[in-house]
Design a protein around this nucleic acid. Structure first.
Length: 260
DNA sequence: AGTACCACCTGACGGC
DNA sequence: TGCCGTCAGGTGGTAC
C-alpha cells in the first residue's frame, strides 16, 4: 500500500533509471487512470524530450520533463513503478509505459486501478491546488506543531489527512503511534506539548528507516508493529495481545498497554 | 472542521 | 476444485 516510504523508493528508482533519456514513445494502456490529461497531450508533451528531475510531495511523485511540465503519479493502493528492457517483458497491469530511445521502458502499474496519472505545468502549484499539507518527511518540529494546532478528532485521522500532513496512510500511522506510545483513537486536543514532541521523533524515525529498508514490509525490524499486523498477534514490546479496531474508517492495530 | 458511510477497483483468502 | 462473500485501503463525494 504505497505510502510515503514506498513512493520515495519509486522516486529513487525513477531517478536512477529514467533521467536524461530521450522519450521515444508513450504507451497508454489504460486511459481511465489518466486524470485531466489525454494520451495525445501526454505524448505530445513527452515524446522527444527527457526527464531531468524527480520530485515527491506526500504520496505524489513527479517526473519533470525539461522545462515544459511534470508527469505526476499517484499510486493508490497497488500502484508501482517498474523498469524493463524489452517489450516482451512488459509487466501485467501496466497503465502507462514510457519507452526510451535505444531500449528501456519505465512502466506505471496499477493492479487494482485506484491510482492516477496526471500532468501539471508546475508540480509545486499542483501540490497547492490539491491542497496538500506539508510533506511528512520535510516537516520539522515547529511545522509539526502547526499541523496539530487547533485540530480536533483522532490523531490517526489527522496523521492520515493529506491536507494536514502529506504522505502517511493507515499502516505507517499505526507504526508511528506505536513507537510514540499513543493510541490511534486519542483525541488530538488531549495531546500536551511533550506528547507532540514525542510524536515528531518517531514520525521521522519510522519513515527514514522504512525508506532505508526499501519500504519492504518483510524487511522491517521485528520490534516494529508492522510484522505483527494481524488478528491475534502479540505486541512486540510487551507480549500482550494487540487490539484491532476500526479507527478513522480504517482497520487499526495497537497495544492497549503500551499506547495510552 | 469533524465524522460516517458509500463507491471505486480487483486480487487474496477463507468457508463451504 | 471452485464458487462466493468479504476484506484490503487511498481517495473522493455526499450527507450530517
Amino acid at each position: 500500500m504505497p505510502e510515503l516510504p514506498d513512493v520515495k523508493v519509486f522516486e529513487q528508482h525513477a531517478s536512477a533509471r529514467s533521467l536524461d533519456r530521450n522519450v521515444a514513445h508513450v504507451h497508454v494502456r489504460d486511459q481511465t487512470l489518466l486524470r485531466g490529461v489525454t494520451r495525445q497531450k501526454l505524448a505530445s508533451q513527452l515524446v522527444g524530450s527527457s526527464f531531468d528531475e524527480t520530485q515527491r510531495h506526500g504520496k505524489f511523485l513527479a517526473l519533470k520533463s525539461n522545462g515544459n511540465g511534470a508527469l505526476i503519479f499517484h499510486f493508490g493502493m497497488t500502484g508501482e513503478l517498474r523498469s524493463f528492457d524489452s517489450s516482451s517483458d512488459e509487466p501485467e497491469h501496466a497503465a502507462v509505459i514510457i519507452e526510451f530511445n535505444g531500449d528501456g521502458y519505465l512502466a506505471y502499474l496499477s493492479k487494482r486501478r485506484l491510482g492516477q496519472g496526471r500532468w501539471a505545468a508546475c508540480f509545486d502549484d499542483f501540490a497547492e491546488d490539491e491542497n496538500l499539507g506539508p510533506d511528512a518527511l520535510a516537516v520539522d518540529l515547529d511545522g509539526f506543531r502547526d499541523v496539530l494546532d487547533d485540530r480536533r478528532g483522532s490523531i490517526k485521522s489527522l496523521l492520515m489527512n493529506q491536507s494536514a500532513l502529506a504522505g502517511i496512510g493507515s499502516v505507517y500511522s499505526d507504526e508511528i503511534l506505536f513507537h510514540a506510545g499513543v493510541r490511534p483513537d486519542r483525541d488530538v486536543a488531549s495531546l500536551g506539548n511533550s506528547d507532540r514532541r514525542d510524536l515528531h521523533r518517531p514520525l521521522r524515525h519510522v519513515l527514514t528507516t522504512a525508506i532505508d529498508r526499501g519500504a519492504q514490509p518483510d524487511r522491517m525490524p521485528e520490534s516494529w508493529l508492522l510484522p505483527s499486523r494481524q488478528e491475534g498477534a502479540s505486541c512486540p514490546r510487551c507480549e500482550g495481545r494487540l487490539t484491532s479496531a476500526t479507527i478513522a474508517g480504517r482497520t487499526s492495530y495497537f497495544c492497549e498497554s503500551c499506547q495510552t
